[in-house]
């Protein structure tokens, strides 16, 4: 899979130079597995996450979900297929429509994909909110009335509402206070046990990655440098860049 962006165009608008944002990235993700993608900022982690969901169109390559090639899929079909793949974004404060009540935001995916009666949808949304630790009173509030941690819980409930096969988590706790990070991560781990979806967990924080992921892919400058079992990578990194990243973890984080 690859994606490049025009860096410079000539006088006639023809592209003369391109940035290789993501280059020859290839990996697989098993059912119920958590694969972390780590790397410094600008390494192409988030781009990979978005390419997988076809939120950006790849230049070439294949994205296969349970034997179905998403890249070959026409737009309409892709839209319906989105129920199987959801995303949680980095910035909880801007990932929900500020004018839509929390409850309605959680209902929206179900409204789009499941032919449910309004009250059943509402019931499910409330149950999901409860599952992520928010009682009914939150359903009527606007996003501006919630904290970052609460908003991220809402985003998780929303992503879960269609019981997807995979959730791409783009730095889901990076914008949160350290005190609520662990709560959100624990919740995500619990929900994975319960619902059995896979996580593609994008992060630059290796201490978090070590705690949550089964396997790790290390990215740098648009390429995957190394991929393997989490413990193996941390114990014996084969790649210089990985080594460098691991050494950059503050010692305290090992706790």
């Amino acid at each position: 899979m690859a994606k490049s962006y025009p860096r410079r165009r000539n006088f006639f608008g023809r592209v003369v130079d391109r940035v290789e944002a993501v280059c020859d990235v290839s990996f697989s993700l098993g059912h119920g597995e958590t694969l972390a993608i780590v790397g410094e900022s600008g390494a192409g982690k988030s781009t990979v996450g978005r390419l997988i969901l076809r939120l950006i169109e790849p230049d070439r390559g294949r994205i296969v979900l349970d034997g179905v090639d998403l890249r070959a899929m026409p737009r309409r079909a892709l839209r319906l297929h989105r129920r199987h793949m959801q995303m949680i974004f980095q910035d909880p404060f801007s990932s929900l429509d500020p004018r839509v009540e929390i409850g309605r935001s959680v209902e929206e995916p179900m409204l789009l994909h499941l032919g449910l009666a309004a009250d059943e949808r509402r019931g499910r949304a409330l149950a999901l909110l409860k599952r992520v630790g928010l009682d009914e009173s939150y359903a009527r509030r606007l996003p501006s009335g919630l904290s970052g941690g609460q908003l991220q819980r809402v985003a998780i409930a929303r992503a879960l509402s269609l019981n997807p096969k995979i959730i791409v988590c783009d730095e889901p706790v990076a914008a949160l206070d350290v005190s609520v990070r662990a709560q959100v991560l624990n919740l995500m781990a619990e929900l994975q046990e319960e619902f059995g979806m896979s996580y593609l967990f994008i992060s630059h924080d290796l201490s978090i990655v070590r705690a949550i992921s089964d396997r790790v892919a290390v990215m740098s400058k648009g390429r995957v440098m190394e991929i393997g079992e989490t413990e193996q990578i941390f114990a014996a990194p084969k790649n210089d860049y990985t080594n460098e990243l691991i050494r950059a973890i503050p010692a305290m984080a090992h706790g």
């Binding site: 969901l53 939120l55 839209r79 319906l80 989105r82 129920r83 959801q86 995303m87 974004f89 980095q90 910035d91 801007s94 990932s95 929900l96 429509d97 500020p98 929206e108 995916p109 789009l112 994909h113 985003a155 929303r158 269609l162």
Partner: peptide, 11 residues
Amino acid sequence: TFIEASFAIGC
């Protein structure tokens, strides 16, 4: 971001 999120849920 919420616009991208809307596309992501299949709007």
